[in-house]
């Protein structure tokens, strides 16, 4: 790291304080490099693993053109993953080894993608919930990132994620208007909503963001991002007549989660147990990864490994 990133931490702080962007290794310190590599890896891994997850669900497309729309979304996700990996390549990471030779449990993406999407309901909900989460996170990076090449590349992502959200919401609205579809949609929403709440990570009281915020890898804290996400999702689901265990509290002007959180989860049954657990318990579940981790990574590495 020291060889690749020649600047001291103080020099980076001075560079950022002058309002300048970091354009490449020549502007980085070892800490900056380590941090930006980590967040780029999480972002690229998340986009990448969504591809096999969405393809699995796309098999349930009601018609050929709907399958085509799902493939278009998959193409976007792959191209977004490409942004992160190519930037990592420029930061001295062996890109093919990172994508194709890592062990499944070394991939860094939200646990939600380890739980299989088994229907068209779950695909469109993933567009409305998961892509919204990705959108919230990346919009924050787009606004706050101090790494110039990433900030600029995200203009593409912004536009395409908007299409994914519209795809998700249009279908959710359509299904919610039909009593039979609505029941199935609600059943999927029940497990997917709480799982997406977890997406934003440990609450601020447990998580020190220090360098992440200071170096501008992100602009908002985990809890702020979780609030942003609920601000997009909760009013929408309520408007179409679906229910989620969260509401807006007028007094505090914040969203409040109305169920035990974090909560015990049965990933095989895709059901919440109703019992509150500790974040340490959640970290154990995350670290062990979920049911689809190995399958998805094997699929992604199939052509390379031969």
């Amino acid at each position: 790291m020291e060889e690749l990133a020649p600047r001291t931490e103080d020099e980076v702080r001075a560079h950022l304080a002058a309002g300048k962007l970091v354009e490449g290794l020549q502007h980085m310190s070892p800490e900056y490099l380590k941090g930006i590599r980590r967040i780029l890896t999480v972002s690229a891994d998340t986009e990448l693993v969504s591809a096999p997850a969405y393809l699995r669900a796309a098999a349930h497309a009601p018609a050929l053109n709907n399958f085509g729309s799902a493939v278009s979304i998959i193409q976007d996700e792959l191209a977004h993953a490409h942004i992160g990996y190519r930037l990592l390549g420029d930061l001295g990471v062996d890109m093919p080894a990172l994508i194709y030779e890592r062990e499944p449990n070394a991939f860094k993406y939200p646990y939600a993608f380890d739980v299989p999407l088994d229907s068209w309901y779950e695909l469109v909900l993933a567009n409305a919930l998961y892509d919204q989460a990705g959108f919230v996170l990346l919009s924050d990076v787009h606004q706050s990132s101090t790494f110039g090449p990433w900030k600029r590349a995200l203009a593409k992502v912004d536009k395409e994620e908007t299409f994914h959200l519209r795809h998700g919401r249009t279908w959710v609205k359509k299904f919610a208007a039909d009593p039979d579809h609505k029941v199935k949609l609600q059943a999927s929403l029940d497990w997917m909503f709480i799982l997406t709440l977890e997406w934003f990570g440990l609450p601020d009281e447990r998580k020190k963001h220090g360098i992440q915020l200071e170096y501008g890898f992100k602009g908002k804290s985990n809890d702020e991002l979780r609030q942003d996400w609920m601000g997009h999702v909760v009013p929408f689901v309520e408007e179409v007549g679906l229910h989620v265990p969260a509401h807006f509290d007028e007094q505090t002007q914040r969203y409040v989660i109305d169920c035990p959180f974090p909560q015990q989860f049965d990933s095989e049954k895709k059901a919440w147990g109703g019992t509150e657990i500790s974040w340490d318990d959640v970290l154990v579940r995350w670290k062990a990864r979920g049911p689809m981790n190995e399958t998805y990574v094997a699929r992604l590495q199939k052509g390379y490994r031969g």
Binding site: Q75, A79, H82, I83, R86, G89, D90, M95, A153, A155, K156, K159, E160
Partner: peptide
């Protein structure tokens, strides 16, 4: 500048560039 592609040959690089940067 819109990005990069990694390909060992020119023809594939051209195809990839078109499909990746289609925004």
């Amino acid at each position: 500048h819109v990005g990069t592609v990694t390909e060992s040959d020119e023809d594939l690089a051209l195809v990839s560039a078109r499909s990746i940067y289609d925004e």
